[in-house]
Structures are given as C-alpha cells and as structure tokens.
C-alpha cells in the first residue's frame, strides 16, 4: 500500500496542532503506520504554519515535498495558495475562505491575492472552499474552525463517521467535546 500524504496549513494560533493530533490518533487506531511533523516555537506566533501527516503500511519521511500531497487542509485562503505546489496532480485542497491579512499586507507592503483560489482552480486544481468560520461560530466557538475543516475533509478518507467522533472524544479536552463534535458534524455535512 502506498503512503498517503496530508498537509494541514494555516496561521499560527488557528489550532493546527489539535487537528493533527486528532488525525494522527485516528489513523493509529485504524492500524496504519503514521508520521506527523509539527511546527513549534517562533512560527507559531502568527506565522505561516504547516503540519504534515503521512500514513500507510510503512512510512519513512515525516515531511511532504512538492507535488506529493494527496490532500491539503487549509485554515486560511492565502495559506492554501502558499502550499499549493505541494499538491499532487490529482490531489485536493479543502480550504476555509477566511482571509487573515499577514503583516506585509496590513502595513501596505504587499497585496492580498483575493482571487488566488479561482486562479488555481482555473489551472485545474481540485479545490473545495467553505466558510468554516461561520460554521464554527454556529457550533459555538470561532476557535473550532480546525474541527469544522477536519469534518469536511473527513470524506476524503476511507474511515466511517463514527470512528472520527470516537477519535474526537479521545483527543479533545472533555469540556469541549460536545462543541467539537457539533463543529465536526457541521463540516462533514457542509
């Protein structure tokens, strides 16, 4: 069996570590060999962050390089475009349409490429965009964007809904389980 490569990308502070923890736990429970590569430290302070999740029968490298990702889950629009080159030809991007301006845009030194997803789509890239922030707020917290997106991306995995819910129960702090289950469900059915 070949190795599957997933990337979770976003802005430091958006909860990519919880998302990768959830996915990693689930994949181990499903019996795969799994590697997850995280980013800690300085980049977490509002910088661009990327987490790699790879699974299969035997996984060696913990990272993903150009043209290798089967799936990119992006918590923010610009970040999807930044990491698009990692996507395999027939891969898929699940992206939150939320726009978070980076500092060069905020101070007017650069422009936010508003239509970049459309441009990538026109180049044949397989992109699913959704307003995960609105769904997260509907679930009860703007911080649940990560789990909403995992819900939407879940359909790309050959793993039943209930197994995801079980993994959420094992990964998330008890007082946030219900809210995150709701967030996952909203993403899944979006």
């Amino acid at each position: 069996m070949k190795t599957t490569s997933v990337m979770i990308v976003g802005v430091g502070g958006q909860g990519s570590l919880l998302a990768s923890k959830l996915l990693g736990r689930l994949l181990v429970d499903e019996g795969y060999d799994v590697k997850v590569s995280e980013v800690h430290g300085m980049s977490q302070r509002g910088g661009s962050v990327v987490t790699y999740v790879r699974f299969g029968e035997k996984v060696y490298s913990p990272i993903v390089t150009d043209g290798e990702a089967d799936l990119i889950i992006s918590f923010e629009k610009l970040e999807a475009a930044r990491y698009a080159r990692y996507l395999k030809k027939d891969g898929r991007i699940v992206v939150n349409t939320q726009q978070i301006d980076p500092m060069p845009v905020i101070i007017g030194a650069a422009e936010y490429p508003e239509t970049v997803l459309e441009e990538l789509q026109a180049k044949g890239m397989n992109i699913e965009a959704l307003d995960a922030l609105a769904l997260a707020e509907q679930a009860g917290s703007s911080r649940a964007v990560n789990i909403v997106l995992m819900g939407r991306a879940a359909k790309q995995f050959d793993i039943p809904y209930d197994r995801w819910i079980a993994a959420i129960e094992k990964t998330v702090a008890p007082k946030f389980v219900e809210m995150n289950k709701k967030a996952f469900d909203l993403g899944y059915h979006s």
Binding site: V11, R45, G47, E68
Partner: peptide, 20 residues
C-alpha cells in the same frame, strides 16, 4: 525527475511571525 506541481502566478505575500 521533479514531481509535477502547480503554483499560483499571483504573488503570495510572506506571513512572518509577529507579536500577538
């Protein structure tokens, strides 16, 4: 051979870390 990949023509601004 390098793996085939697609990139945006649009300029992607950097997102450096910053004070919260």
């Amino acid at each position: 051979d390098k793996k085939e990949c697609v990139t945006a023509d649009a300029v992607i601004p950097n997102r450096p870390p910053m004070m919260c």
